[in-house]
């Protein structure tokens, strides 16, 4: 505590000089001793102090660019990797197109091959493995406006996964070639379900309004939908709960291929023999048609 009390008392905190002066006074010297080097010590000390300060400044300025460098190196690495994966994706696309061309060429040689190719094209379209475009019917479902709050239950006017499921199944039944929800392509095995407040389609959350695009013969789809149970159900939802439901036609609809199709039932021919390739345990009980 003597530091603080000395401080408040206004005393000299480092009494070394005062004591030295008092000693000199007692010894009868007037001038402070010059020492051996005549200020050499002071000079030396101050050079060291200046050196220290300069080194510290240089050190601080050096360490800052190091952090900056690391950051920009990481950013550069991310960019490089992204470019690499883009390049790989492009290569994959090229190879896929190449494979497709060669398959077409190989299958076109024989009658059986042409039949197989037609099968393959149909299967690819049915499995949503290729992008499609064409005329389409777009069915829009949206949550009810929360206009007369309190009268209805809070979530009565919400679109549920069941509504979308019913609608999608009705559209398949009505003869749609391909279906997408909010631009996401549906495969025959795509799950539509609720998780919390969001509706997941293929495990990716979507938010309303939900636009269900059904490619195919628009008149037929629209008519079949209106007559179906699903159409009546959605109409009832609109009437009773205010769920917004509407259809419109579009000439130019485009749906991408579904992401990451997995081969579940096909096996390479060499491994399991001929019969292994066509095990019928798929959801539709069909399996592949060709061994």
């Amino acid at each position: 505590m003597s530091l603080l009390s000395d401080l408040f008392a206004g005393k000299v905190l480092d009494p070394g000089y005062a004591e030295a002066a008092a000693r000199r006074e007692a010894a009868g010297e007037r001038e402070p001793r010059r020492g051996r080097f005549r200020h050499g010590g002071v000079l030396l000390v101050l050079i060291v102090v200046g050196l220290l300060i300069a080194v510290a400044v240089a050190e601080v300025r050096r360490s800052e660019p190091v952090a900056q460098q690391q950051r920009s190196r990481l950013i550069g690495e991310i960019r490089t990797r992204t470019a690499e994966s883009d390049e790989l994706q492009r290569r994959l696309d090229r190879l896929r197109a190449d494979t497709e061309r060669q398959r077409v060429a190989a299958l076109a040689r024989s009658e059986a091959g042409r039949r197989a190719r037609a099968d393959l094209t149909a299967a690819g379209a049915a499995a949503a493995a290729v992008p499609v475009e064409g005329t389409a019917l777009v069915v829009t479902l949206a949550d009810a406006e929360p206009q007369d709050g309190g009268r209805r239950r809070a979530d009565a006017g919400r679109v549920y996964d069941q509504d979308l499921q019913v609608l999608v199944n009705a559209l398949w039944a009505a003869g749609a070639r391909a279906i997408g929800i909010n631009g996401q392509r549906l495969t025959p095995t795509t799950a539509i379900r609720t998780a919390g407040e969001a509706i997941l389609v293929d495990y990716r959350p979507l938010t309303g309004p939900y636009e269900v695009t059904a490619l195919g013969d628009r008149d037929r789809i629209e008519g079949a939908l209106r007559r179906s149970a699903a159409g009546r159900r959605l109409q009832a939802l609109e009437d009773r709960f205010g769920v917004r439901y509407g259809t419109r036609r579009t000439d130019e609809a485009r749906l991408p291929a579904a992401g990451a199709l997995q081969l579940r039932h096909a096996r390479p021919r060499g491994e399991g023999g001929r019969g292994e390739g066509a095990r019928g345990e798929g959801p539709r009980g069909e399996g592949t048609r060709r061994p």
């Binding site: 030396l44 101050l46 050079i47 060291v48 102090v49 200046g50 300060i53 300069a54 080194v55 240089a58």
Partner: peptide
């Protein structure tokens, strides 16, 4: 001395 030290360090 101080200036010389800084200059030396830099």
């Amino acid at each position: 001395g101080l200036v010389a030290g800084v200059v030396l360090g830099l």
